[in-house]
Design a binder for these strands. Structure first.
Length: 324
DNA sequence: GAGTTTGAAACT
DNA sequence: CAGTTTCAAACTC
């Protein structure tokens, strides 16, 4: 049973804080709740706002709203029960609450025993100064901006990603969210259930690096490419001769890492074809007036044959003998 | 440190 | 949505 939790969120991205005291689970997406419950958030100050202060629209009322909560006296960082310090989550609008919080990263950082704070766009990099010259640090090219941070001690030129340019910054954030509502979500998703370290939510599109250089977001995140990737000439997979198993530090060798080759075989076309076969069986069973039990058996047998062909295809592509 | 390469983001 | 341009980081020398 999920217990009410406290959610701390910087709704403006400028260090202004709102605290949702003891939100009920139905106020937060389920996936977020699960992670939040594993994170020990600090108690809000006495001045913190209650849930009534939360603006679901996150637009017209935000200016005054933020002003109202600007002086909550809460620290800019928090320390979890595991001793991990993380910044208050970024996020331009209260309506993007679930995007603003980054509990997944926090949990994963705890698991890895890191103390670097919340995610960077580049997964394994600690916070570092940007060097932007043309973007005014108001586009996702800028790592600080992409992480929801304001620039601090950076070497950027003509920077607008700071508290002195809150208006421009807010507009830029809104523009990014308009283009892509998930722009500030983590790129490396959690896949703990599958006992897998993680996967790139969009996949990479590398063409020349073989996904074996830090240009590749998967490689840089120390994860292997999957069928989600659209890379060309990928060598970032388990059996790749170019990739030694010791290349990445792997604290737990029991963790299962996906290989790319088998997954690549299960393309949308294959899935569609499989579904087509199953549907055909169902239609035939219906046409013949078979019982539902008989129909189920037909469909399962068909599925078995499809699976057989897929497995054959996988073994064939990896030049491994397949014994029936 | 300058120049080149790379791929994501932004634009058309 | 595909092709092109822009951009900043990664990389090479």
């Amino acid at each position: 049973m999920l217990q009410p939790v406290q959610v701390v969120c910087d709704v403006t991205g400028g260090g202004q804080v709102v605290v949702l005291n003891h939100c009920s689970p139905d106020q937060i997406p389920h996936s977020l709740m699960m992670d939040l419950n594993t994170v020990s958030l600090p108690k809000p100050s006495e001045q913190s706002c209650s849930t009534e202060d939360y603006s679901p629209t996150g637009k017209a009322s935000d200016a005054g709203h933020s002003e109202k909560i600007a002086s909550t006296g809460l620290p800019q960082t928090h320390k979890t029960s595991a001793g991990v310090t993380f910044n208050l989550a970024p996020g331009p609008y209260a309506s993007q609450l679930h995007q603003a919080l980054c509990p997944t990263q926090i949990v994963e950082l705890e698991e890895e025993g890191q103390t670097k704070g919340r995610r960077r766009v580049k997964w394994d990099k600690s916070k570092r100064p940007c060097n932007c010259t043309k973007s005014q640090c108001l586009k996702l090219y800028c790592e600080c901006f992409a992480n929801g941070d304001v620039c601090n001690n950076c070497k950027c030129l003509n920077c607008y990603n700071n508290t002195e340019h809150n208006l421009e910054r807010s507009q830029a954030i809104k523009a990014c969210l308009d283009r892509n509502p998930g722009a500030f979500r983590p790129k490396i998703g959690s896949r703990k259930q599958g006992n897998v370290k993680g996967c790139h939510t969009k996949g990479c599109n590398c063409k020349r690096s073989g996904c074996l250089k830090n240009y590749c977001e998967c490689y840089e995140a120390k994860i292997m490419c999957t069928s989600t990737c659209k890379c060309v000439g990928c060598r970032n997979y388990e059996e790749s001769p170019s990739k030694k198993s010791s290349e990445w530090d792997r604290p737990d060798s029991s963790i299962f890492y996906p290989t790319r080759s088998p997954l690549v075989c299960i393309t949308p076309d294959v899935v569609e074809a499989t579904c087509g076969c199953l549907l055909a069986q169902a239609e035939e069973a219906e046409k013949e007036g078979y019982t539902s039990a008989h129909a189920e058996r037909m469909i399962l047998e068909e599925f078995g044959q499809c699976l057989n062909q897929i497995v054959r295809s996988i073994f064939k592509s990896s030049s491994v003998q397949f014994n029936e």
